[in-house]
Structure formats: structure tokens, C-alpha cells
Nucleic acid binder design. Sequence first.
RNA 1: UGGGGCAUCGUAUAAUGGCAGUACAGCGGACUCUGAAUCCGCUAGUCUAGGUUCGAAUCCUAGUGCCCCAGCCA
Length: 566
Amino acid sequence: MKPKADNNEYSESEDFIRARIRSDLESGIEKPVTRFPPEPNGYLHIGHAKSICLNFGIAEEFGGECNLRFDDTNPSKEDIEYEEAIKEDVRWLGFDWENRIYYASDYFEQLYEYALQLIGEGKAYVDDLSAEEIREYRGTLSEPGRESPSRERSVEESLGLFQAMRNGDFDDGQYVLRAKIDMASGNMNMRDPVMYRIMKKPHPRTRDSWSIYPMYDWAHGQSDSIEGITHSLCTLEFEDHRPLYDWFIVQLGIYHSRQIEFARLNLSYTVLSKRNLMKLVSEGFVSGWDDPRMPTISGLRRRGYTPESIKDFCRKIGITKQDSVIDMELLEHSIREDLNRRAQRMMVVLDPLKVVIVNYPEGKEEELDAVNNPEDPSMGKRKVPFSRELFIERDDFMEDPPKKFYRLSPGSEVRLRYAYIVRCVGFERDPTTGEVTEVHCEYDPDTRGGSAPDGRKVRGTIHWVSAKSASRVTVRLYDRLFTVPNPMADKQREFTEFLNPDSLRILENCAAEPALGDCAGDINCQFERKGYFVLDSVDSVSGAPVFNRTVSLRDSWSRQSGGKVG
RNA sequence: UGGGGCAUCGUAUAAUGGCAGUACAGCGGACUCUGAAUCCGCUAGUCUAGGUUCGAAUCCUAGUGCCCCAGCCA
């Protein structure tokens, strides 16, 4: 089937960044070169996916290139574990940096030479003010700063001191190298920003060969320039840094990459900052960075999201400079749309209630045809066993049903999907708890396969599993991580106070079609009428599968009945 | 008058002086062996006030609101 993407909204119009690239292409540049520059200090999340799709997407669309660059300028926060996870996530999304993997740390020597150049030209100086003093001297948002006494230091002295900083002659914090710009600038970033700090810490890649490390502002633009990045795309909070980005490049007289800013992604009912995600992990609110409730790429992957659905989502949200919060339902729409097209259908009863077909012969078993995917006939059919004793969903039976309840209730008729039309003729309950323990039905042998030869209308069709051959599986139902759309909105309260206590429900005794009892690999399927599920890649063991609910099906019944269904 | 940015249905996003469109959500209907999917329809928007113009979301003026910046983090 042809996707309706041919003449839809996103192929017709271009965002402001693509428009700019197109115009730059017309006015001379050969091809766009972009980069995705994560710091290896945490796992990638859906917000990074937006940036990845933008940077790699532009390279694909315009015949350019996109580099993967690790912005590893702060060894106190970075770890090799993160680097590997990041590479895996980018690859999983379906992007390829080929041989273009770079590290800011590869440029440490070049950056050092550049610094020498600026010092030599009197545009940078070594400062001996303490961190606290630097802050005081910087002034405030509305008052200009004061110049450090070190500003008057001679070029020769700064050169010597800077070399000594590199040699490890000083302790952490004793000196910094600063750019000499303008302490009265309205832009705080231009008030003699720190370029290097002393940090006697081994670096994952350069080990102990450096005792000074460049700051972001000093490293990023120059790294872009060295790599010939034409368009350096970053988020809005760096707009204030652009004058500094440009200043360094102009002073150095090197290739001028251009920084362009766009709005970062915000998603409702979750948080999207490494700091806060880190807190959820380290304080045990979730099981790890890849907890299926996490908005990380690895969490979404384990939850059952596909790369296609994430890329589709990124295309739909667009690229602008407006602060916005995207509704989680749009992400859910993307995965439903993708999985509806490709997921194998299965019948699984999450909360089993026993049904006895009283007029069905004891010991008899037959195999019925079930469609694997009504959206895709090429996926074929499969056999499902049927017998006298079945399981149905507990909430598909009601002793005293409300209006418009199309499922089973005393005296009513319902279709067992792919099987027979049955009528409820009675039920049993536990005398002490009052809970319904068993439902009795009579089946109509003429309706084999679920058809009604007499043309009778049966509104309800429910899923079921033959009791004898059912596989016992564990199912984890996930719900939104937070109870409020924006957990960060309340400044008085910690965002963790808004964690949803019901974000995970574990169902140990679900009854599944036999085939699901022993399966392996990346299995995305739809449990009919319940949602899309994926075999958990971590906790499933052979013969004891665990399924994660990726997303429920849309459910207009629970909305209209106000009830919570499964 | 510290600096920088942003304002279009509930949420996003298009319209680059010429019919305010699309998607998600919501509501209603058709269809249905998934209360799914699909199809059809409906609701709903240009921050405010002036101005320019035959014509303004778009240009001008003045307001208002929101976001970011005072790390030796990125």
C-alpha cells in the first residue's frame, strides 16, 4: 500500500534551516557538511533524535555529509560507556557516519596552537583570579563587569604561564586562560570568557597527556571549522554564544562555519534533559537508561518503538525557533501508524477469565484460521487451537452491563474472533469474594470461523485463548512516566514528585497463543484489541517471555464509558 | 531602554502582500469478525492597539506576553 506521504504537509514546505541551506547552495557552497556533536556524558534521548534527523537528514537530502563528533572536552563528566551507547543509538536510527567519526579531543593540540596565536596577538591572557572572583568581576545581567588585573599581563608572561599550565605546573583552579573581549558587553558570553581551565584528570582518550582542557565555546566552533562544517546546527540556548563563536573564528582567520539555532524538543508527560534523566536512573526511579518508560533512544527501542516511527515523528514536529511542547500523543500516533501496517496480530488474554463452552465436546480440539495482519494480506494466516475451555478477558464479561456494552453478559451473544458465535448461559462466582470465576456459554456450530450464515448481526467480537494450549507469559503495561504534562513547570516542587505511581503494571499470568510461549528476537506484534507489544530484549528468557506494551490501541470505548480498560 | 530570541485552532506546523491550510487531539457519522484500522464530516486560530495598502498572519509604529543568558558544564 502506498504511504500517503506523497503530497502531505512535510514534503511541500521547507523549514527555515533547509531554506537557508538551499540558498547557500545557490550562492556558491559546494555541499552542506553538518555534524551531530554529543558529549559522551549520558544516553541519547528523543530530543537528540530530532537533532540527528536534522543533521543527517540534511546531508542525505542535499548530497552532503554529516559527521559524528564527540564533544569530549570535560573528562570529569564523560565516560566510554556513553560513547558506545551513542554510536549504537545513531546506527539503530538508521544513520551512517561512514568513516567520519571525530573527537574534539583530536583537536587539543591544534586548539592549543590557536590559543598561543591569540595570546601572541594580545587577544587572550592568563588570569589568576579565583572562580569566585571571576564571577564577581563578571558583573550582573544589568551591570557591566570589571576588568581583571591580569588583563594587563604581558604577552610574554601569559605565554609562559599558559605553557606552564599545560605542563601541569599548577593546581586545578589556580589559573585560567581567558579571551580579551569586552567586560562591559551586554552579552555575558563576551565578558572575557574562559577558554581553558586546569583539570588534572585523565581523559578517556588522551589519558594524562593534558592537564588543561578547552571550554565548549573555545572547542566547538574551531572543531567545526577544522572539519569544514558549513552549517553548525544547535539549540536555541546557544544563540547568545554565536557572537563568541564568530569572534574566535574571525580572530583566528580560519574557515567560517555558521551556527544556526533551532528550538529543542520538549515532550509532554516526560523530561528531556540529561541531568534529570540521570537523576531518574541514579536514584532508582527507573531500572536504567533503557527502562521502557524513559524517553531515551534505548528506552524507546526497548519499549518497542521502531526507528521509522521516531524518524516519522521528527519529520512531523518540524524545525522552528519557537519554544514548544509536543504532545506525547503525536509520538504515539507515529508508532501506532507504523505498527498497524507491519505488526503481526496475536491473541493474548491479559486478565484471564475461564469460559466453558458447555455444548462443545469434551476432549475435542480444532484448528481455526486467523489472519496475521488485515492491513497486509501477504502476511498470511496462522492456525489457532480451539477447545471447550477458553480464557477471555475478565472485563469482557459483565453480569450487569451498562448500555452499549457489546461484549459478554448473561443471555447475550458475542463472537469469539476467528471461531464461533457464543451465547452466555450462566456463570459461577466465588461465594466468599463474589468474584466471577467461570462463565458458561453455548456455541453455534454453524458459525465456525466467526461468520454468521443466517446474516445475524453480532456487535461484539472478543479475543480468546484455548485454555489447555495457552502459553503463560508476563506482560508489562507501561503508562506515562509523569502525571502532569510538564513536570518541570512547578518551581516549588521537585519533578520527581510528579512521577506516575502506575507507570508500570506487571501482569504475570497472561494467556497467550501457544506460539508466543517460545519466541525470540525483535518481535513487535499487536495483541488484538489490547495494543502493540514487543518481546523484552533484557528480561525474557527461553520459555518465559516478557512482553512490553509499546502503546495501547486507541480506545473509544474506555473513553466513552469513562472506565479504565486493561 | 542589560543582551539575545519567539508569538497562527487545545498542541504543533504551513501560508514570504492575494481564499488562513495540514497533522495530532477532541466531537459526530459510515464501515467493520479488533469499540482498532479505514472513510466522511464537524469544532477550533493569526498576542494587543494604531498605521501603510485595492488587499496584511506577512510591511511600519507602539505596546503586551513567554523563553534563554551572570559554570573554571555542554
